[in-house]
């Protein structure tokens, strides 16, 4: 009886230790994520500046859909999402399955080179791409030397070419990152499965679609959710590559929210409403992707 009592207090002690270990982290997440999230929701129903905030009901939400710049930014985020994420993920998957080949030489060198862009800061690579594609930049110089262009083309001064440059830059920066996830996932697949497929006469294309893709499904789902999440929150590239221009044609939602709260006359209520739309989009898309990911089982 005495023994039992002692055990009980010991497990109670361990339980308390566990709570002591995790409380700082949990508390920080509550204060730094959940509290601001609730505050932003309250803010999104208010309008005004500084201390003179008053209730405005759904005014901010209604205003969003009348705001042509916001609609443009929403379009841009979805354009980047729909074009860039599939290109990047397919490319990452193809590269990972090539590098997983045991007979490949210089595998480490290829992997390091393809992964290197991930070590570059977002602001750095945005500025590098902006300089490469400037009117007097490297790409124009080469095109003029090759006789394709007579004078420099203003890639970043035209809406569609500017959007495409952003997509190229994003693919450059993030393909290697996603590739590492796929390589890790591939290491969990027995290599003998591939050898068996080879003996059965399967082409590399068949092996890719029939073995690699189905077995990597959880990783593909994870990278899809991460990329969707990241693309909907694009900020650094929009600010430093195109500065949202020309005339807000390439601006992203986060960039517009930043401008609305910290660049122009601060409008925290309206900005909070817009940020809630991002929150809802991220949540809904993650939910849909998880449902679709589960169905194919």
């Amino acid at each position: 009886m005495k023994e039992k009592k002692k055990k009980f207090t010991l497990s109670q002690k361990h339980n308390a230790t566990g709570w002591a270990f995790l409380t700082p982290a949990a508390l920080l997440i509550v204060i730094m994520s959940f509290v601001p999230m609730v505050k932003a929701l309250i803010l999104s129903f208010k309008t005004g500046v500084g201390a003179n905030m008053k209730w405005a009901g759904l005014y901010n939400y209604a205003r969003m859909f009348q705001d042509s710049v916001f609609r443009q930014s929403l379009f841009n985020n979805f354009f980047y999402l729909i074009i860039q994420v599939p290109i990047m993920l397919v490319l990452a998957l193809v590269l990972a399955s090539m590098l997983n080949n045991k007979n490949l030489r210089c595998e480490g060198l290829f992997r390091t080179m393809i992964f290197l862009p991930c070590a570059t800061s977002l602001v750095s690579y945005a500025i590098i791409f902006r300089s490469l594609f400037a009117v007097d930049g490297f790409v124009n110089t080469v095109l003029i030397k090759m006789g394709i262009l007579n004078t420099g083309y203003n890639f970043l001064g035209h809406p569609w070419s500017a959007r495409i440059i952003i997509i190229i830059a994003l693919v450059w920066r993030w393909t290697g990152y996603n590739m590492v996830f796929y390589l890790s996932g591939l290491q969990n697949i027995e290599y003998s499965v591939y050898e068996a497929a080879k003996i059965d006469g399967a082409s590399p294309f068949q092996t890719f679609w029939k073995i690699t893709v189905p077995l990597l499904k959880p990783t593909i789902l994870l990278t899809t959710i991460m990329s969707t999440n990241g693309t909907l929150q694009l900020f650094d590239e929009s600010v430093n590559l195109t500065n949202g221009g020309p005339a807000n044609a390439t601006i992203t939602m986060s960039h517009y929210i930043y401008n609305m709260s910290f660049k122009y006359v601060p409008n925290f209520g309206y900005s909070a409403a817009m940020s809630y739309l991002i929150l809802i989009l991220v949540a809904v898309l993650a939910f849909v992707q998880m449902k679709v990911g589960d169905k194919r089982d």
């Binding site: 995790l22 982290a25 949990a26 997440i29 730094m32 994520s33 959940f34 509290v35 601001p36 999230m37 505050k39 932003a40 803010l43 999440n229 909907l232 929150q233 900020f235 939602m253 986060s254 929210i257 930043y258 709260s261 910290f262 925290f268 900005s271 909070a272 817009m274 940020s275 809630y276 991002i278 929150l279 991220v282 949540a283 993650a286």
Partner: peptide, 24 residues
């Protein structure tokens, strides 16, 4: 249970917490 609530914070976009954080 607490862990799964914490994982939810992964889905919170920074833009949604940025303004209240700035005020705080």
């Amino acid at each position: 249970g607490v862990m799964s609530i914490i994982l939810l914070a992964m889905m919170v976009p920074f833009a949604a917490t940025m303004i209240p954080l700035f005020q705080m």
